[in-house]
């Protein structure tokens, strides 16, 4: 990002360092008093989130930082987005489309929500279709949304079978070749990946982002 002012740097630093009060105060000042370009402020936020993601990958940050970062971004977005003018360029081009949901029988969503947030701030268009998602809903959503990647989430051991069924149904519907499928959740490992027929599994949200980025690069 070129032409960064001291204030810009300060916002990024405070966001990346989890100094919520200072960061939100400064972002509000930039947006509401200084008349800063809201798209630029959001880009600064994304840059800060890159730093957060890097610190997560390096083992410096953990889930609490990801969650707080998400909430800070949401608060700034709520102020910035109404200020974006219609002519402002139509937003950033997304890397790829990801459809994500917790498989049927399982109601857990903490991990899925963090993956959704991390994919979103890393430039993916993400559609989250919730928890306890029936197989047919995945098929219908894939037909409607045409994702490049499908993410199946599940925390319970019953999710192994649900993931297998979902992937088998995607295959039976003739949709499997159009997409990559990743799985994740507390008990997921290579054994489960092989059992379900997924392309990959991730241990955390950064894994999910890396998988999607690699697939997006290959597809480009």
């Amino acid at each position: 990002m070129s032409d960064m002012s001291e204030q810009d740097r300060q916002l990024m630093e405070w966001l990346a360092d989890m100094r919520e009060d200072e960061a939100l105060q400064l972002a509000n000042k930039m947006l509401l008093e200084d008349g800063a370009d809201p798209l630029r402020v959001l880009e600064l936020c994304r840059n800060a989130m890159d730093i957060v993601g890097q610190r997560f990958s390096q083992g410096e940050y953990f889930l609490p930082e990801l969650v707080l970062a998400g909430e800070m971004l949401q608060k700034i977005g709520a102020v910035a987005k109404p200020l974006i003018k219609q002519t402002a360029g139509g937003g950033q081009r997304k890397l790829a489309k990801v459809l994500i949901g917790t498989v049927h029988g399982d109601l857990h969503d903490i991990g899925k929500n963090i993956v959704t947030f991390m994919l979103d701030i890393n430039g993916f268009e993400v559609k989250d279709i919730g928890v306890d998602v029936p197989v047919q809903t995945f098929i219908d959503e894939i037909n409607g949304y045409a994702p490049d990647v499908v993410g199946l989430s599940g925390f319970l051991t019953l999710a192994f079978e649900s993931m297998k069924e979902t992937i088998a149904a995607i295959e039976a519907a003739g949709l499997r070749e159009r997409m990559k499928i990743m799985i994740g959740g507390g008990q997921i490992d290579e054994t489960v990946r092989a059992y379900t027929g997924a392309d990959a599994f991730g241990r955390n949200a950064v894994d999910a982002v890396s998988l999607c980025k690699n697939w997006a690069v290959v597809a480009a």
Partner: peptide
Amino acid sequence: GARGMMTDLFR
């Protein structure tokens, strides 16, 4: 709750 607790570590 999970979200509340994680943000409480800071707030």
